[in-house]
């Protein structure tokens, strides 16, 4: 977390530093929220089709962060291609690789248990999570790994008079762009309709000639691709990564998915952005020490007040 939460606040008679502080927190919250939303989409899509929480999803996010680091340093993409093109290629590579990991996870950990009791799949998910985390630790070690800061732009952008770090702006734009693209894909294409149909009724979807196994595979490509790029974003934004980071981010993104209504794709987007903003503002104006607890307070409140989530009218018939 950047230290903006404790930046000095000017005397009250000039309102603009207060407004400025608020807007900084808001944009920071949107960036973090965009990251949560990208991860949350993976939880919610898999849940939508399989009624299963992919507990290893947070670890795929971590793989995105580490793969991003390794590719960034070993291929020197930004040196060779320039910053913009280099990062674009990096994003595509990370998405592709983590998507493949997701597909392998589905094949190895979930498909063999498709007809088994739900609990077997949950145990398998937890096992996969531990396996993925420990593999990463054995390869990279348990310490924090640092993204090279000489590669990352430290520039700030003037957005309507507000000076915002370039990386923050890029993250907000990229995450919102990907969400819009995913939304259009799900809502407007034939394959998107097949995914929605399979989420409602797999048997009926098969009677339409939809190969549900391929829908499931697709969901395990898309979700991890977005989760992986979210990991890369965290690396680029905060500059350091750790092999257990998927746990905290995973829990928060899961909270975001519940907040929006699990199984609901626009819900995951709204839930992620909202949680990011609530957390950033809460950390700034309530207590920085409670930052990580805020998500869980939100989760508990949602479960009490509106268990179906904000957009989740359909959840009742799904559980």
């Amino acid at each position: 977390m950047p230290a903006s939460g404790i930046s000095p606040i000017s005397p009250i008679h000039s309102a603009s530093p207060l407004v400025e502080e608020f807007l900084q927190q808001l944009t920071n919250g949107l960036a973090v929220g965009g990251i949560y939303a990208l991860i949350a989409l993976g939880y919610t899509m898999v849940y939508g089709v399989l009624k299963l929480i992919n507990f290893a999803h947070g670890d795929l996010f971590t793989y995105g962060a580490y793969l991003g680091l390794t590719l960034l340093t070993s291929l020197a993409l930004t040196d060779r291609l320039g910053f913009a093109l280099g990062v674009l290629v990096l994003v595509l590579m990370v998405m592709g690789l983590v998507a493949v990991l997701g597909a392998i996870l589905e094949r190895a950990a979930y498909r063999p248990l498709r007809e088994s009791p739900r609990l077997s799949a949950v145990v398998s998910a937890l096992g996969a999570s531990i396996f993925l985390q420990n593999t990463l630790m054995l390869i990279y070690g348990a310490r924090f790994q640092v993204y090279p800061d000489d590669i990352l732009p430290t520039a700030t952008l003037n957005v309507l008079g507000l000076y915002v770090p370039l990386m923050r702006v890029l993250i907000v734009l990229a995450s919102v762009g990907m969400m819009v693209a995913l939304y259009l894909f799900i809502q407007k294409t034939r394959i998107g309709a097949a995914i929605r149909a399979a989420a409602i009724d797999q048997g009926a979807a098969r009677l339409m000639g939809i190969d549900v196994n391929r829908v499931i595979l697709l969901v395990f490509l898309l979700g991890p691709a977005l989760g992986g790029v979210a990991g890369l974003m965290v690396g680029l934004y905060y500059g350091q990564v750790n092999f257990t980071m998927g746990w905290v981010y995973g829990m928060k993104a899961f909270t975001a998915a519940i907040l929006g209504g699990i199984g609901n794709i626009p819900g995951a987007m709204v839930g992620g952005l909202l949680l990011g903003v609530i957390e950033a503002l809460g950390a700034a104006y309530v207590s920085i020490a409670w930052k990580d607890a805020i998500a869980f307070v939100v989760l508990i409140l949602i479960l009490i007040v509106r268990p179906t989530g904000l957009l989740g009218e359909r959840v009742a018939d799904k559980i």
């Binding site: 309709a193 929605r196 149909a197 409602i200 009724d201 048997g203 009926a204 098969r206 009677l207 339409m208 000639g209 939809i210 190969d211 549900v212 359909r314």
Partner: peptide
């Protein structure tokens, strides 16, 4: 598998309709 049969010419309107309600 079921999805192959549809293209071959076998379609079903199942018991209980099972339409996709949110579509």
């Amino acid at each position: 598998p079921a999805h192959r049969l549809v293209g071959m010419g076998i379609a079903q309107a199942p018991e209980g309709r099972r339409i996709f309600g949110t579509l």
